[in-house]
């Protein structure tokens, strides 16, 4: 048996996938690091020169990076809180038996499958527009006046849109996790006299801890690169009010054509993501081991 298994050479099977990811990851990563230490603007015909830490100094001493960093963290934190809380509630609700439950489940997860540009535009135009939007009509009918979300609270508006897109993702992960809770475990808790609230706090919530961690970390990675929603709604404005790290880098790179500065921003984004990644890898690694 073992002799037979040794005949299979795994190298040729693995090489395409490993090679593709290696190129995809290492080459741009090294280039970003390299460019971040260069004085390099595509509009400047003078070419490139070594800049050392100049780009980083410009970034750190400028206001934009800190505003963008703050917006990024606020965006990630707020959307995480809303999607985790909302997703858990919806998952617990949809885990119960009631007429039409399966249809409700389909309706709840639907927003996650809509392309981000469409979601953002539907919200921006048809719901949140201060003149013709549905929300403005409702608040005006109630005598509250019409809020102009993207002028007065652009970041909050984007948080609302992204939370609507990603709460279904939390449901998508948490609901199956909840359903994997065995009948015996629930039965045992009920025998011990646990009511609905106690069941949620002491049985369901602890069971959801790991899937919730996975949701949080995957969402964080996506939210750090959040771009399309900002691109089609506020374009980062007014001023820097809704500019996150991703949008700042995009502006430095494709508007200012400042390769060096944008790359330094990229390195900051990568560093931020790495902090999250370390935790995520640990959780997933543990899952792999638990299965063996």
């Amino acid at each position: 048996m073992t002799r037979q298994r040794h005949r299979v050479r795994t190298g040729p099977l693995m090489t395409p996938a490993v090679g593709m990811l290696l190129v995809w990851m290492i080459v741009p990563l090294l280039m970003t690091l390299w460019f971040s230490a260069q004085r390099y603007n595509l509009l400047d015909p003078g070419g490139t020169a070594f800049a050392g830490l100049e780009n980083y100094r410009d970034l750190v001493t400028g206001r934009a990076l800190w505003v963008a960093m703050g917006n990024t963290l606020l965006l990630v934190g707020a959307v995480l809180a809303i999607t985790l809380a909302g997703g858990t509630l919806l998952a617990v609700l949809l885990d119960r038996e009631f007429p039409g439950r399966n249809i409700c489940r389909l309706l709840v997860i639907a927003p996650f499958f809509v392309m981000p540009t469409v979601s953002a535009l539907v919200w921006k135009n048809m719901l949140m527009n201060p003149v013709f939007g549905l929300i403005a009509w409702i608040t005006r009918s109630l005598g509250l006046g019409a809020p102009d979300f993207f002028a007065t609270a652009p970041l909050a508006a984007i948080i609302l849109i992204v939370a609507w897109e990603w709460t279904p993702f939390a449901v998508l992960i948490l609901l199956p996790a909840l359903q994997s809770l065995s009948k015996e475990q629930r039965e045992a808790a009920r025998m011990d006299g646990a009511g609905a609230a106690a069941m949620f706090l002491h049985v369901e919530l602890p069971h959801l801890r790991r899937p919730m961690a996975v949701v949080a970390m995957i969402e964080t990675i996506f939210f750090l690169s959040l771009f399309a929603e900002i691109y089609v709604t506020t374009a980062g404005g007014p001023g820097l009010a809704s500019t996150n790290l991703a949008y700042l880098i995009f502006q430095d790179a494709l508007f200012e054509w400042d390769v060096g500065l944008a790359s330094a921003g990229g390195v900051v984004a990568i560093a931020l993501a790495n902090v999250v990644a370390i935790f995520l890898m640990r959780v997933v690694g543990r899952t792999l081991e638990a299965e063996r």
Binding site: S225, G266, A269, I270, A273, L280
Partner: peptide
């Protein structure tokens, strides 16, 4: 872990 690399970090290259 390659999925952890934020797209925006490698936009320029």
């Amino acid at each position: 872990s390659t999925k952890m690399l934020p797209a925006v970090g490698v936009l320029v290259p």
